[in-house]
Nucleic acid binder design. Structure first.
Lengths: 142, 142
DNA sequence: GAATCATATTTGCATATACAAATAAACTTC
DNA sequence: GAAGTTTATTTGTATATGCAAATATGATTC
């Protein structure tokens, strides 16, 4: 069924989550190429861009809770893509060589995902909607 | 951090999910009053409105997979709010008396949630955005 | 410098959701 | 009417995420 045919088509909760799940699915397909979930991939990109970034910084950038960040990093460690070094109460996260070597493919995925939804949703429409949705998110409490 | 300040502010995956999580949080607070998650509540409303509705119908209305629907119903059974009756290969779901008695409160929650986000996001803006987001979701593959 | 407070991170636990496989019933076709 | 196919539902398992508590470090205040 289409979202706009559901009895809850007027409900923000329903529509925001339905849209999120569908976008997530699309993203998962793209990132499967490098055997990562979208969250792991975006976190890894931040780590490559800024080696030594801390969980707090990642949490802020990704709008995910610190505990979720810990779990994401753990998985990247398991995959040999990131390392953690504890310095006092701080933790710094670094990309491994393997991760750096993967960068071109990661960027390719970013592009192909963007192209993917732009083709489906329309390029201008997507840009506009992302902006508007970000503005909505800004207004809501963390 | 605001969504529009993140490095991924232009990414549909990132923004759609961040918005979804924030809306979900708001919805959870509302529905806590009746000790239900938003998904359980909306499912229960469908069951009250159409006693005997089948998991397939619920799955279509809620845009959730059948297995998720099964799990949601199980929980409502545990709470004494719904019952299932298996007839051949079909399953029909019914509200209990307890659920029917709860209806006014459920409707109150629907209203207070809508008011809640309308106040935060602006009434017209919310309406327009829900419509636009539904249109986006429609275009994406299930 | 000891005691308190604040900050960063992790851990234990709970939840919602999905996928794939299993089950079971109904339908088709010959 | 038997065999194969389709449909409806459930089950087993995996995932991402969050909250609250635990831990550990650093900062402040007296």
């Amino acid at each position: 069924m289409k979202a706009s045919e559901s009895k809850y088509k007027h409900c923000m909760y329903f529509i925001a989550n339905a849209l999120g799940r569908r976008i997530e699915k699309l993203a998962m397909e793209t990132w499967k190429q490098v055997d990562l979930s979208p969250s792991h991939a975006y976190l890894l990109l931040l780590v490559i861009e800024e080696p030594g970034i801390q969980p707090t910084g990642l949490s802020e950038q990704l709008l995910l809770t610190p505990s979720t960040i810990t779990r994401l990093i753990e998985k990247l460690e398991d995959k040999g893509l990131a390392t953690r070094s504890t310095e006092g109460k701080l933790t710094k996260v670094y990309p491994t060589e393997k991760a750096k070597a993967l960068l071109p493919k990661l960027l390719e995925c970013v592009n192909s995902f963007t192209e993917n939804y732009s083709n489906i949703l329309g390029k201008d429409e997507s840009l506009r909607m992302v902006k508007n949705m970000a503005a909505l998110a800004d207004k809501l409490p963390e």
